[in-house]
Computed example of a mutant assay.
Amino acid sequence: MTKSRKTFIIILSTILIMLLALLFLFPLIWMIASSMKSESSIYNDLGGIKAFLPGLNPAQWGSAYQKLLGRFNILRFILNSVLYALAVTLGSVLVNSAAGYAFSKFDFRGKKILFGLLIASMVVPGDTIMIQKFQIVKILHLINSPWAVIFPAVAGAFNIYMFKNFFDQVSDSIVESAELDGASAFTIYWRVLLPMAKPVIATVGTLSFIGSWNDYIWPLMVLTDADKFPLQIAITNINNTQPVYMNQVMAILTISTVPLVLIYMFFQKYLVQGLAVAGNGDK
């Protein structure tokens, strides 16, 4: 392949990638721009390039957000979502890493069968066991409690699988050296192996945070008090509360979406590394 042909292919690929990226960014740009306009401007600008631009008057850019905060207790819903997501993230990292450590470094009866069942559970859609989860939460008297949202989301078969694969790649000699120095199993897990698993921690933490933040059906099933609703349920309530203003709908959607975009951009490097570990198990 000649140098000029190779350069042409690179340029063409770059252009196609940029066009594809713009195609996916259009809805996001339109949403943010619409949240910075008056109600009438949104409909007047449809069908033209102005639909992707904010209002001409900078003084109106925050008007929809101010009115939205005045009509609804948005800060409360945001705080609920943040608390749920942070609790699920922390719990996911601790529980799944501990389970992955046990499967990787401990030998116990039925280990292979138990791990096989764990992997098999990954093909079971979560919606099919939602009723069973609800019954368990009800038996534990956790209905309308934040724990009902947090506990079922903590453990995940795929997250355990990622941690196990990472710990499998850590040489057993490191564990044996720590044992010779008198370190307990928990000390080895907490002070030796877990600090080495930063890419997997970032991956599991990010995916858990995003999953909890976007969860809608499960909190709607287990929560009855509106003050405990996360932001996703609040969005539905706002969309159904008359009068409905399109710029305020776009504002609440922007509030819900932009944090996830920023989190993904910040942890993108770790996500790639962590997901690569998940497919490189050698045991």
Rank of each mutant, 00 (worst) to 15 (best):
R5M: 03
R5Y: 01
I11H: 10
T14V: 00
L19S: 07
W30F: 09
M31F: 06
I32V: 15
S35Y: 09
S38T: 15
S41A: 15
N44E: 12
G55M: 08
Y65I: 13
L68A: 05
R71E: 11
F72Y: 11
L90C: 10
V95A: 12
A99F: 14
F103D: 06
S104I: 04
L114W: 04
L114P: 03
P125M: 08
I129E: 02
F134L: 14
V137T: 10
I139L: 14
I143N: 14
M162L: 12
F163T: 01
K164P: 01
F167M: 11
I174Q: 12
E176A: 10
A178I: 12
A178T: 13
G182E: 03
R191W: 05
M196E: 02
A202L: 13
T203V: 09
G205Y: 00
I210T: 05
S212K: 07
S212V: 11
A226G: 00
K228R: 10
F229Q: 00
L231I: 10
I238Q: 03
Q248F: 10
Q248R: 13
I252Y: 07
S256V: 03
T257R: 09
L262W: 09
Y264C: 12
M265W: 04
F266D: 00
F267E: 05
Q273W: 05
A276D: 14
G279K: 11
D282A: 12
